Computed example of a mutant assay.
Amino acid sequence: MDLNYLFHRHQVSMMMAAAARGSEARMAHVQLAGRYARQIASAQAGMGADRTFVAA
């Protein structure tokens, strides 16, 4: 998967969480951002990135 796409979707999810009016919507966006973060970390690890520098 394209890392730029994943970084973009993660950022959009975080912005949506910040703008959410309710706690349920906010939590849903934060959880989605977390899934993107795990996909980013997995992709980076698959490319040989040092885990020290991989953000979770």
Score class of each variant (00 low, 15 high):
residue 1 M to A: 06
residue 1 M to S: 01
residue 2 D to W: 06
residue 3 L to N: 07
residue 3 L to A: 04
residue 3 L to I: 05
residue 3 L to V: 01
residue 5 Y to D: 06
residue 5 Y to R: 06
residue 7 F to N: 12
residue 7 F to V: 01
residue 9 R to Q: 15
residue 9 R to P: 01
residue 9 R to L: 06
residue 10 H to P: 00
residue 10 H to V: 00
residue 11 Q to N: 03
residue 12 V to Q: 13
residue 12 V to E: 14
residue 12 V to Y: 06
residue 13 S to Q: 07
residue 13 S to H: 10
residue 13 S to W: 00
residue 14 M to L: 15
residue 14 M to F: 04
residue 14 M to K: 14
residue 16 M to I: 08
residue 16 M to D: 15
residue 16 M to T: 13
residue 17 A to N: 10
residue 17 A to I: 08
residue 18 A to D: 15
residue 18 A to T: 08
residue 18 A to F: 11
residue 20 A to Q: 10
residue 20 A to W: 12
residue 20 A to C: 08
residue 21 R to D: 14
residue 22 G to F: 08
residue 22 G to Y: 11
residue 23 S to A: 10
residue 23 S to T: 15
residue 25 A to Q: 15
residue 25 A to F: 06
residue 26 R to F: 06
residue 26 R to A: 09
residue 26 R to I: 04
residue 27 M to I: 02
residue 28 A to M: 10
residue 28 A to E: 14
residue 28 A to V: 04
residue 29 H to W: 13
residue 29 H to K: 00
residue 30 V to N: 03
residue 30 V to Y: 09
residue 31 Q to I: 02
residue 31 Q to V: 06
residue 31 Q to D: 09
residue 31 Q to W: 00
residue 31 Q to M: 09
residue 33 A to R: 00
residue 33 A to P: 03
residue 33 A to S: 08
residue 34 G to F: 02
residue 34 G to L: 04
residue 34 G to S: 05
residue 37 A to S: 15
residue 37 A to M: 10
residue 38 R to S: 03
residue 39 Q to S: 04
residue 39 Q to L: 07
residue 40 I to P: 01
residue 41 A to S: 12
residue 42 S to C: 05
residue 46 G to T: 09
residue 47 M to K: 05
residue 47 M to T: 02
residue 48 G to N: 11
residue 48 G to V: 09
residue 53 F to S: 07
residue 54 V to E: 11
residue 54 V to H: 14
residue 55 A to N: 10
residue 55 A to W: 05
residue 56 A to S: 07
